[in-house]
């Protein structure tokens, strides 16, 4: 087991097609206490290519945490989640669903597909920053993660 706090930079993969949301997440993470590096995949296929180190992502690192939006072009977040959790190599990486949807069906389906947690993006900026910080705090400092 490795305590990431004392170690190197934490790698986060954000799967998000909205540049505004990407920027907001970046801003929120800036205020966090953990040194982190954020990678962004803009659609589902891109995300899977990154995780499998295919094509231009041959040198991509293995992320410690995945922040996954549900509404994505090409491959939806749900499909990405399903493929990650079906892949023996990737399924240990914690996946946090970060979406605007409060739909019960979305929540239920995500957990059925073994999402590690489901978070609704708050509209309020302060709350959003708080949520991102708490994700960071919980998943990157409180939780003991599996070795890479």
């Amino acid at each position: 087991m490795v305590n990431r706090l004392n170690c190197k930079t934490i790698e986060i993969l954000l799967v998000e097609d909205n540049p505004g949301d990407v920027r907001l997440t970046k801003e929120a993470l800036k205020e966090g206490k953990v040194k982190n590096k954020l990678y962004v995949a803009e659609d589902g296929e891109d995300a899977l290519a990154f995780l499998r180190r295919q094509g231009r992502y041959a040198q991509a690192p293995r992320p410690d945490l995945i922040l996954l939006d549900l509404n994505l072009p090409k491959k939806t977040g749900r499909e990405v989640l399903e493929e990650i959790k079906d892949d023996p190599d990737l399924k240990r990486i914690p996946v946090v669903i970060l979406t605007v949807s409060k739909d019960e069906q979305d929540i239920l389906k995500s957990y059925n597909l073994h999402a590690n947690c489901y978070i609704t993006k708050p509209v309020d900026l302060e709350k959003f920053i708080e949520v991102v910080k708490s994700i960071e705090d919980f998943w990157l400092t409180v939780v003991m993660l599996p070795p890479r």
Partner: peptide, 20 residues
């Protein structure tokens, strides 16, 4: 109303960021 959330969140968040 569901799809309106997304752009609205952008407006709200960035005006708040501006304010902040």
């Amino acid at each position: 109303s569901h799809d309106l959330q997304e752009p609205l969140r952008m407006v709200a968040s960035f005006t708040q960021l501006l304010a902040k």
